[in-house]
Design a protein around this nucleic acid. Structure first.
Lengths: 73, 73
DNA sequence: GCATCATGTTAATAATATTTTACATTATGT
DNA sequence: ACATAATGTAAAATATTATTAACATGATGC
């Protein structure tokens, strides 16, 4: 499956935050669990708005969660 | 017209970077001028990938260009 | 064994972002 | 006056992201 160009460590952050589940994170930022799954598995990148919300939950700068990896030339 | 929830200072940055035009910025990051116009006028938010590319052009952290302003309760 | 919870997969639909094209406006230079 | 460059506006078409729902798996506890 095609990976998107944005890497992330949401999964690691969830575990470091009291093993927050995908469901809890989803509810926290107001999206469905499917969206969390898709982002964690790099099926697609979140919107900028969603990325900011996620950074807000974990209280870290956005760039600490998401990194741009061009991949394509 | 409805504004999106992400603020930005691309316009200011363009002028501070040798008065870079919308056209030049667009070409730099590989999108059309319409996309730059839409983002600058907050018609919609860029994708996370685009936001990273724009930050790359201006060589500043993403959060220095884009700020999340919830607006809605 | 059975129920429950967390995670994963797939597919269809809805919502949003981006492209393309065309035309308008304002300022600048000749 | 005319040409050009930068910006703005609008609409339709396409691409990407997000939602919803249904079903599957592995782990845990009773």
């Amino acid at each position: 499956m095609q990976l998107c160009s944005i890497q992330n460590n949401m999964r690691k952050l969830r575990f470091n935050h009291d093993e927050m589940t995908q469901q809890e994170l989803a509810k926290n930022i107001g999206v469905t669990r499917q969206t969390i799954i898709a982002i964690e598995s790099r099926k697609y990148s979140p919107t900028l708005e969603l990325a900011f919300k996620i950074a807000g939950v974990f209280q870290v700068p956005l760039e600490e969660i998401f990194q741009y990896k061009p991949e394509k030339s």
